[in-house]
């Protein structure tokens, strides 16, 4: 009997601090599997964000750096320019990449830095307690929009992937989801492509991953997968954007 699915080498065997049913754990594992499959564990450098994944470097078994809130792409730019032989990626949530780090994100993309960006979008701020994020859906209830997000007061969900796709420096953008095993397989394929683009010097690649946050959505883990499938993908359609 062969073992057909096991713990990836690039992921440490520790218990994470994430809530039960959190998408971060799934995405950490996918990245670790891609790093193993491309045999780049000795030369990959990950940049951890501020947000729930702030201690992602405790979970991956490869070199990582931490960045100030939103500045992951600025740190990644510096590391990649100095150490061109390394494979540098950032792992950022919607608060980090699309709120405080919008500036750094847009300019790194516009410069066409040869980087890989993993953007995890759960439409809410997790670490700080479930406040509205730029990507929060209209009518979605959060700690700071208790009656639901109202477009006249709080604007519309920010589609940063579509915005970045307009820039000539950006070479690859795809939006995927974690709401079913089939979508997880597609997510892994997209992430592998984004890493391969950097290996082949193609340029700036970003994968946006829709991910569940059962704790702050206030529903069970399996209901949160259904919520992504039925509600979130209508606002954030899946597939290749560029």
């Amino acid at each position: 009997m062969d073992k057909i699915y096991t713990h990836p080498r690039a992921l440490r065997k520790t218990v994470t601090h994430y809530c039960p049913g959190c998408g971060h754990g799934i995405l950490h594992r996918i990245i670790a599997e891609v790093v193993d499959e491309l045999a780049i564990r000795e030369k990959v450098i990950g940049i951890a964000p501020v947000g729930c994944a702030v201690i992602a470097y405790d979970y991956w078994d490869f070199d990582c750096s931490e960045a100030a809130h939103g500045r992951a792409l600025a740190v990644a730019t510096a590391i990649k320019r100095v150490r061109k032989e390394n494979i540098v990626f950032t792992y950022q949530g919607d608060g980090d990449l699309a709120a405080i780090g919008t500036n750094e994100t847009i300019h790194a993309a516009n410069r066409g830095e040869n980087l890989t960006v993993i953007f995890i979008n759960n439409a809410i701020y997790g670490m700080t307690g479930g406040q509205m994020a730029p990507t929060t859906l209209l009518n979605q209830k959060t700690a700071t929009t208790p009656k639901g997000r109202n477009a006249q007061l709080q604007g519309y969900p920010l589609k940063i992937s579509e915005m970045l796709a307009l820039l000539p420096g950006v070479k690859y953008i795809e939006r995927t989801s974690l709401h079913s095993p089939q979508e997880i397989i597609k997510t892994k394929k997209a992430i592998k492509q984004a890493f391969l683009n950097q290996v082949e010097n193609i340029g700036f690649s970003l994968v946006e991953v829709l991910s569940p946050c059962p704790t702050y959505w206030g529903i069970s883990p399996s209901q949160s997968l259904n919520w992504i499938r039925d509600t979130m993908v209508k606002e954030f359609p899946l597939g290749r954007i560029k």
Binding site: K3, Y5, T6, P8, Y18, G21, G25, I26, R29, P181
Partner: peptide, 11 residues
């Protein structure tokens, strides 16, 4: 594939 905590091995 769906386990967020990487607890499952398949044979």
């Amino acid at each position: 594939l769906i386990c967020p905590d990487c607890c499952i091995e398949v044979y």
